[in-house]
């Protein structure tokens, strides 16, 4: 029981990342019809927003203490982050909470990047074949990766979670199990909850607002919405910006789980495309469902008992499930008729 619950938890945080990336991909595809291979790079850019903020907040003031010497005879360097020197305890709080605070940076930065990407490049490829779209967005992803590599180097950069979330939660106690039977890192639980909140906000925005209603109508029949005098193109641009924000938030909050490097987006992108296909092209609900489902399945496949029966199953389970689902339900779990079928 405890092993099963642990694998479910393990799958939920990974599934959260898959679901968020797949949600953004589906938004861009469903509205603009764009197969965006640069979406992983947006996840990476979000992660590096968190890295950049952390670096900025930890810029250090160096003072020399001549009364203390290092083993090599130099005066001891006392390093204090500027924000701590200027703001005292509040400065320490800012440094400690740099990852959650980075959300405030990620939202405007990613919105601008998303809009710039759509207006500057992607809109020129709306009427081009999907192969052209894949090539140009893939090229863009490589360019963005190289820019980040130039400024931040090629190595993963660790960014810690706030100290209060550094330990683990006794999840087993919630299910009446003895203490410390199932413990799970606090930050991974928070990431899962964060993913749920973001997904909820996106769905609420699309379902409960007039803007969302127009976008949904546009996704169904762009031409008719246009004939009603609504500038659907502008709304779609904003939707692309929202997709970029979702990917960026997913990346920023994932930094304490996995130290990001310039390639992190590409590692998630391939799996996220599988998630989109399994969920059903253009289906937001399908993307979220498939994200969590595949995350949990991957986690179960990594159990020793499972690997003892089928060695290496943890590496291929996602692709195996994708094949089975596409054979039995060619439109994916919640795919709509007519999407990507022309």
């Amino acid at each position: 029981m405890d092993a099963i619950l642990l694998q479910v938890l393990n799958g939920l945080d990974k599934g959260g990342a898959y679901a968020l990336i797949a949600l953004g991909l589906t938004l861009a595809f469903g509205t603009l019809g764009i197969v965006n291979f640069a979406h992983g790079a947006l996840f990476m850019l979000g992660a590096f927003c968190a890295v950049a903020l952390n670096k900025l907040l930890t810029l250090e003031k160096v003072t020399l203490d001549p009364t203390q010497k290092t083993p090599w005879g130099a005066p001891l360097e006392i390093r204090t982050p500027y924000v701590e020197a200027w703001l005292g305890d509040f400065g320490k709080f800012l440094v400690d909470w740099s990852v959650p605070i980075s959300i405030l940076v990620v939202v405007p930065v990613m919105l601008l990047i998303g809009i710039a990407m759509e207006r500057g490049l992607i809109r020129h490829f709306y009427k081009r074949p999907h192969a052209d779209q894949i090539l140009v967005t893939f090229g863009l992803a490589i360019v963005l990766q190289e820019i980040v590599k130039h400024f931040f180097g090629a190595n993963p950069i660790p960014v810690p979670a706030p100290a209060i979330f550094a330990g683990s939660a006794d999840v087993g106690a919630l299910f009446g199990l003895p203490p410390n039977t199932i413990v799970y890192p606090w930050w991974r639980l928070i990431y899962f909850l964060f993913a749920l909140v973001v997904i909820g906000i996106v769905f609420a925005f699309l379902q409960l607002t007039t803007f969302g209603m127009v976008v949904r109508a546009g996704m169904r029949d762009r031409e008719t919405v246009g004939l009603l005098g609504i500038n659907i193109e502008r709304r779609f641009t904003i939707v692309f910006g929202i997709a970029a924000i979702v990917a960026g938030l997913a990346g920023a909050m994932y930094t304490p789980v996995l130290p990001p490097n310039y390639h992190i987006g590409m590692d998630f992108l391939v799996l996220s495309f599988v998630v989109v296909v399994v969920g059903g092209m253009g289906s937001l609900g399908g993307a979220v469902l498939a994200g969590f489902l595949l995350g949990i399945l991957q986690s179960f496949a990594s159990m020793n008992e499972v690997k003892a029966i089928i060695p290496g199953i943890d590496q291929i389970i996602i692709y195996l499930v994708a094949v089975v689902i596409l054979l039995t339900r060619p439109r994916g779990l919640m795919g709509r008729k007519g999407v990507m079928e022309d």
């Binding site: 694998q7 393990n10 990974k14 991974r188 986690s299 990594s302």
Partner: peptide, 8 residues
Amino acid sequence: DYSQYLTP
């Protein structure tokens, strides 16, 4: 990410 290797 070593979570899938650590949980077992």
